[in-house]
Amino acid sequence: MAREFPIRGEVIRLGQLLKAAGLADSGVDAKELLLTGDVRVNGEPETRRGRQLRPGDVVELGDETVEIR
């Protein structure tokens, strides 16, 4: 089951979300996670740290799932 992550505004960048949701400790960690191909957005592998996420998008990393609200 996905945990919900509310955002202020219309978008959040993927790197920011990974840090804010506790999936990465730093921007460097987020970048490394993205390079491994382990991060999925809406079921598709994503490597761009600047990818803009909107409410309804789902981010997966390992057994963690976060839905943007």
Rank of each mutant, 00 (worst) to 15 (best):
M1Y: 02
M1V: 05
M1D: 07
A2F: 04
A2H: 11
A2N: 11
A2V: 13
R3W: 00
R3S: 01
R3Y: 00
E4H: 06
F5N: 00
F5K: 01
F5L: 01
F5W: 01
P6V: 05
P6R: 13
P6D: 09
I7K: 04
R8G: 15
R8D: 13
R8V: 15
E10F: 05
E10L: 09
V11R: 14
V11W: 04
V11L: 05
V11G: 02
I12H: 08
R13G: 13
R13H: 08
R13E: 15
L14H: 06
L14D: 04
L14P: 09
L17F: 04
L17K: 03
L18W: 00
L18P: 01
K19Q: 15
K19F: 04
A20K: 02
A21W: 01
A21G: 01
A21R: 00
G22K: 01
L23A: 05
L23V: 02
A24C: 03
D25P: 07
G27L: 11
G27E: 08
V28L: 10
V28M: 11
V28E: 13
V28D: 06
V28W: 03
D29N: 12
D29S: 11
A30P: 03
A30S: 14
A30R: 07
K31I: 08
K31S: 14
K31M: 12
L33F: 08
L35F: 04
L35G: 05
T36L: 12
G37P: 08
D38T: 12
D38V: 11
D38Y: 12
D38P: 02
V39P: 09
V39S: 10
V41T: 11
V41D: 12
V41Y: 07
N42P: 10
N42A: 06
G43F: 08
E44H: 08
E44N: 05
E44T: 14
P45N: 09
P45L: 10
E46L: 03
E46V: 11
E46T: 12
E46I: 09
E46H: 03
E46A: 15
T47K: 05
T47Q: 06
T47A: 13
R48S: 12
R49E: 13
R49W: 12
R49I: 15
G50E: 12
G50R: 03
R51G: 06
R51Y: 06
R51T: 12
Q52I: 00
Q52Y: 03
R54F: 06
R54S: 14
G56R: 10
D57V: 01
V58P: 04
V58Y: 01
V58E: 14
V59Q: 07
E60H: 09
E60D: 12
L61W: 07
L61A: 11
G62V: 06
D63L: 10
D63F: 05
D63H: 13
E64V: 02
E64H: 15
E64P: 03
T65R: 15
T65Y: 01
V66K: 00
I68T: 10
I68C: 06
I68M: 09
R69E: 01
